[in-house]
């Protein structure tokens, strides 16, 4: 009896398990089918919606929202002048400059993993980077050529902004921020020149900083420098190099300026620059031409710096 009973129980349990498994299989199959079907529209998934929040379709509302709800895109307005997207007007040089800055930050951080800013190791690190590190040569080449390209892009950007008169009211201040950014770009490139610690960088920086000797008042060879007590050991060149010659301290200073200080300063100015582009009414044009006959006569002299209350 117990044997039979037990046998019955066992077969009953087995059947139940088999039945459950079958039901579960059916259940999973149904679910899986449904969900696989759902994956054909990935933008309806919770994952997609949690990241992007907006449907990816062609309605004007969602096109606007895809820009406005994205941190990286929201520097842009949702809509712009139809002619402002023309390459012939903008030349795209400002955007390319920013992209090159991103490329340089990326390759620069990777380069920092392989570099010690010391007289003993710096040059060897470059040799190691070029010969032993996987893709090290490519990394270094990219960093250098992107830097050169960035300078050209900055100049052409400034050239375009000048020729389209985009520095005029209300964008005067942003032009000044741009000039500062250009100087920072040149300084970034210049401080990086010394870092390989080779003859090229050494003599370029020697030539460059020798000019600081001649700074009026603050350099020991400059006009009235000697009269003010400037020597090779306390003048502005000494402050730049951390010594009287281009040596270990100069290498460390160049490294810190290049990798930390100037990029930080430049990033802050870049933030201001982009923000002001928006706040000053977006990019300057192409705007409708103004005719000479439409110039408004100014009442009295235009106060540029001092603008007393009550005046425009």
């Amino acid at each position: 009896m117990p044997k039979e009973n037990g046998g019955n129980k066992r077969t009953g349990l087995l059947e139940k398990v088999q039945e459950d498994a079958k039901a579960l299989k059916e259940f999973f199959r149904e679910k899986g089918k449904e969900e696989l079907e759902g994956l054909k529209e990935p933008e309806k998934t919770q994952l997609f919606r949690s990241i992007f929040r907006v449907k990816h379709d062609e309605t004007p509302r969602n096109r606007a929202l895809s820009v406005l709800t994205n941190l990286f895109f929201h520097l842009h307005p949702a809509k712009i002048n139809r002619d402002a997207v023309r390459y012939s007007y903008t030349w795209g040089m400002g955007g390319i400059t920013f992209y090159l800055f991103v490329v340089l930050t990326f390759t620069g951080v990777l380069l920092m993993f392989y570099y010690h800013p010391t007289k003993i190791q710096a040059f060897r690190d470059i040799l190691y980077l070029e010969n032993d590190v996987p893709f090290g040569k490519l990394l270094r080449n990219m960093h250098r050529w992107a830097a050169h390209l960035m300078i050209i892009a900055v100049w052409l950007h400034m050239f375009r902004v000048f020729l389209t008169g985009s520095y005029k009211r209300p964008r005067e201040f942003n032009w000044c921020v741009g000039v500062i950014l250009m100087v920072l770009t040149l300084l970034l490139s210049f401080t990086g020149y010394l870092l390989p610690d080779d003859q090229l960088g050494f003599w370029a920086v020697t030539v460059g900083t020798n000019m600081a000797r001649a700074t009026p008042l603050l350099g020991h060879e400059g006009p009235f420098g000697a009269q003010l007590g400037m020597t090779p050991y306390n003048d502005v060149r000494f402050a730049l190099l951390g010594g009287s010659i281009v040596d270990a301290n100069a290498l460390l200073r160049a490294y810190i300026w290049h990798c930390i200080a100037i990029p930080l300063i430049a990033a802050i100015f870049m933030g201001v620059h982009f923000w002001r582009v928006r706040k000053d009414g977006g990019i300057s044009g192409p705007s409708p031409v103004m005719l000479e006959s439409e110039i408004k006569e100014e009442k009295g002299p235009r106060p540029v710096i001092l603008r007393p209350s009550g005046m425009r």
Partner: peptide, 11 residues
């Protein structure tokens, strides 16, 4: 630059 013309186009 006191010239108000040429703001936003090549000329």
């Amino acid at each position: 630059d006191a010239n108000p013309l040429g703001n936003g186009y090549y000329t």
